[in-house]
Design a protein around this nucleic acid. Structure first.
Lengths: 135, 135
DNA sequence: CTTTGCACTTGCAAATTGCAAGCAAAATTA
DNA sequence: TAATTTTGCTTGCAATTTGCAAGTGCAAAG
């Protein structure tokens, strides 16, 4: 069950082994930008991830220390997913994905607004958002 | 054959539809950092991509305007793959992946050396490397 | 104490992956 | 000029992964 079969020492390759698929970074996105953090929230996202895939991705993200599970303060029936520091550290990468996509595709208004802030002072934005996510 | 089935307008999702798998960014990496640019070069990389997968990834990267094929100056039998501007624009994203991985995993010496340069002046590094890749 | 909500699990068909072998055109060697 | 090798793929097939639908078990609400 562990990641015993590392393809190489390349950091790009190691990273892709964790979140290199069509879904994992969407979960990170939800936790980072949309503040969606329950299983049901993830299922409700636009891309319509299948429930078994979601469960499997949440597990590997947890196994790799990107997210943690905890009991939701509202109810024991709910599970609250949160980004760990390692997960929060993906923020600069997520921002760069947005900036790349902005150059070549149409973005939704809210994401455009966010990038406007990013461009004013990227480091400041990252610092503020990081502190926000740590709460 | 086109990407008619767009999952959502989210830039993260759109990006992942192009290069969200375990292999595509390794090809970009080879073109970007290792200057490997023939079919055979890609096959020789540490991660040992299967030849049919390589062919399919090269095709979708080309279809999405990330890379272009041209005749190798040395020989008509060889194909030279190059990053387009859209591909070169993935550099900041690739750097952030390296920086993230550096924080949590061991990197090979040459990549560490590169990141040392990056940290001195990220913007300068990107500018220089971008100009290099345009040649 | 029954019904609803939430977080999953299970079963199965369809698609994708990975391995090995094959193939045609160009280049090299004999 | 003919035979061999290199290069960039394609093909066939088994194994794994995905995606869809239905089901399950526990907590909370009515």
């Amino acid at each position: 069950m562990t990641d015993s079969k590392k393809r190489s020492d390349c950091p790009i390759s190691c990273s892709l082994e964790i979140w290199g698929d069509k879904w994992s970074l969407l979960i990170v996105r939800d936790l980072m930008f949309a503040k969606q953090c329950t299983y049901g929230d993830f299922l409700k996202s636009d891309e319509k991830i299948a429930t078994n895939i979601l469960a499997s991705r949440l597990q590997t993200l947890e196994e790799n220390g990107i997210i943690t599970k905890s009991v939701h303060p509202d109810s024991k029936a709910k599970v609250l997913y949160k980004l760990t520091q390692k997960g929060i550290d993906l923020l600069p990468l997520m921002i760069e994905i947005n900036l790349w996509a902005e150059k070549y595709y149409d973005l939704p208004a809210d994401r455009k607004a966010m990038l406007k802030e990013v461009k004013k002072d990227k480091e400041k934005f990252i610092e503020t958002a990081t502190n926000d996510l740590k709460k």
